[in-house]
Nucleic acid binder design. Sequence first.
DNA 1: TCGAGTTAATCTCAGCGTGAGGACAACATG
DNA 2: CATGTTGTCCTCACGCTGAGATTAACTCGA
Lengths: 243, 243
Amino acid sequence: MASEAEFLKGYDPGAYPAVAVTVDVVALTIRDGELCVLLVERAEHPFAGRRALPGGFVRGEGLDDAALRELQEETALGKVHLEQLRTYGDPGRDPRMRVFSVAYLAFAPGLPEPRAGSDAAGAAWVPVEQATGLAFDHDTILADGLDRARSKLEYTPLATAFVGDEFTIGELRQVYASVWGEELHAGNFHRKVLSVPGFVESTGATTARGGERGGPRAKLYRAGDAQLLHPALLRPAREDGVR
Amino acid sequence: MASEAEFLKGYDPGAYPAVAVTVDVVALTIRDGELCVLLVERAEHPFAGRRALPGGFVRGEGLDDAALRELQEETALGKVHLEQLRTYGDPGRDPRMRVFSVAYLAFAPGLPEPRAGSDAAGAAWVPVEQATGLAFDHDTILADGLDRARSKLEYTPLATAFVGDEFTIGELRQVYASVWGEELHAGNFHRKVLSVPGFVESTGATTARGGERGGPRAKLYRAGDAQLLHPALLRPAREDGVR
DNA sequence: TCGAGTTAATCTCAGCGTGAGGACAACATG
DNA sequence: CATGTTGTCCTCACGCTGAGATTAACTCGA
């Protein structure tokens, strides 16, 4: 029986049908109280001229690194939360060849306008309700990403990835309201956030002045060290239908 | 500018470095009240002789179909729940070439002994605590799969995938106890399961006789049509540590 | 045949988190 | 200065929770 070293020496990677692996990123941010996703306009075939999620072929790097690279090609970003969403591999989802796409989900605080990347005619933050008719199966990927984001707000401190290093409880509440698409009771939200150990910790400081239209100075907080929220901030008013 | 059809005609899939995509399956079942995972012993290099998760290269099929095929090569199974876990693609995780593995999670009711498959010297159900030292990065994949399974029990009717078509509340409680590794309060569990709309529905029948060591005949239920549990069956006694 | 042990199913009770609403002070705007 | 807005805190009623006790049905061994 051949040793493992001898086996590997005689192994021919080209003996199998060619497949490719890409990463596509669902990058979310909040602009003017609205949940937005980063889209590019494809410059090349296939789907030239159509809007798509930023992404590209994986090179000699790890998957997480590839997703980060693709994201940085489109927009200048500082702190960003990145996690794998799932992988899409139906035969025929890409007309060129068999392509598997590992989708990622990214969250970042409010960002400036993106810059055009190499393989994209333009990039822009688009409100999620207007992000339809995307190339490939990106409509499906986006929908899956939104589902994941909405449910992760409930039981993880993910919302802190959407705001700056220091933030007020009101800003945090705006994040939940924007992602969930519904208003939240300010008093109850305040009580619940502060009652979850490790969610936020006080900086002792307050904002320099009150809100846009009045009100007292709000206390400032930063993200705590919790990885999971106990108890969770459950999302209200779900109909007990077929879910 | 060339049309999309002309572009595709001149496209050469072989112009990129060769990569491969595999599926690996974390198949879980409960045998004698113990949570077990399906493992195979690898017959060929690399990692010949080591235990591994069942899996193999994806052919011209979809990812879900590939996972189902790999599973059926190892064990005879009837009803099975299958879902994608995540994708592992670190360079170097397979010594042959760049291999991306799409991991799947499978749940099935108590099954008979598995059969040996094509590329496996043998297959066996192994209690999860004894499933260590696996080939490739399968230790990591298994750990991720167990995490997912444990948390999905809380908010989905997944536990019904571990039992037969008709089951008692006590059998369902055994599933939760086995997967979570802790005993549950029988009275509270009973009340909570029946209070969740769509989780289980009564068949009207009861078991033919009482339990092994006595007790009344238990009522029989089958799985309901709920996709998500409201309210969730939260897992008790989590320490509020660094989670 | 009868008692002991086991189990399914139900009930009770104190405690906690929840949603809803209100109170109040601090602040911006006109 | 008057008015409206906002952050923070409080109260209250309701529902779910965990823990324990209770009842009835059943198996097994003496």
